[in-house]
Design a protein around this nucleic acid. Structure first.
Lengths: 139, 139
DNA sequence: CTGTATCCACTAAGATACTG
DNA sequence: CAGTATCTTAGTGGATACAG
């Protein structure tokens, strides 16, 4: 979501910046959730807000602006009273769903393994901590 | 990288937390780059550091610890002098490369479109800004 | 060589209040 | 309804120094 000042010079090799930069946008937590919500069709501001449930106005506005800037969503404003603004995925945005979906699938499929690994890791850490205490016990 | 306190209750529908949580880990900038570097095979600490080029010791250590905790990389320590520590992707980590790759491909393929969209957006913003100045001119 | 610990700057994000 | 503005806080990340 930030400018490309700090992120870009982080890596110089080849076209890796492309991934980094792109991931910085679409890998963002709120971005993913908003795109996910919008997947179902065009939505209004407060509809998205309710769908995502937990996002603040600020973050929703920023996220939508970023997505619009990158041509991933289309913003249509009806200057009626009360005002009405629709957001919908562009072609580009819809294409993004594909890799996002595969990431989603990976997450769903391998989350048990990750949780198990974390359990196991925690146990190893406890044993290591115990070994430490026996050294530092006196103090 | 944070705990699941703020993130989880953000969405309530189905198993969406899985994505959120997982994305928080693997969508991280450094995580992606480290996994990418490790893709080529087992590497030592400073090898990774040089490969990623731009990562600080702190972030590399934190990233590796997170990856190890989630069972994505394997850490092998040889208590020799000087010490030597190898990191390599686990099976789980190698599987992660697949969706990551599709995201990478998406980034490479559609980055031009995104950049173009950003250009176009900037122009629209400039016009809007000009309209503003004519209103606020006096002040 | 492979880390850990401390300090510091920055900014991202939430809460709140206000505008068109 | 759809935002914008501002304040405050918590976390991220870098630099440096030091330890095993």
């Amino acid at each position: 979501m930030n400018d490309t000042n700090t992120s870009v010079r982080a890596c110089e090799a080849g076209h890796k910046p492309a991934v980094t930069e792109t991931l910085a946008r679409i890998g963002d937590k709120w971005t993913v959730m908003v795109v996910g919500a919008l997947h179902q069709g065009p939505m209004r501001y407060n509809q998205i807000r309710r769908a995502v449930e937990g996002i603040s106005q600020r973050m929703l506005t920023l996220t939508l602006k970023g997505l619009e800037e990158d041509g991933l969503v289309n913003r249509t404003m009806y200057p009626t009273i009360p005002p009405r603004v629709d957001y919908e995925l562009t072609d580009l945005g819809r294409k993004l769903i594909v890799p996002l979906q595969s990431l989603y699938d990976w997450a769903v499929e391998h989350r048990p393994a990750m949780l198990a690994a974390r359990e196991k890791f925690a146990k190893k850490q406890r044993k290591a901590a115990l070994r430490q205490t026996s050294f530092t016990a006196a103090k």
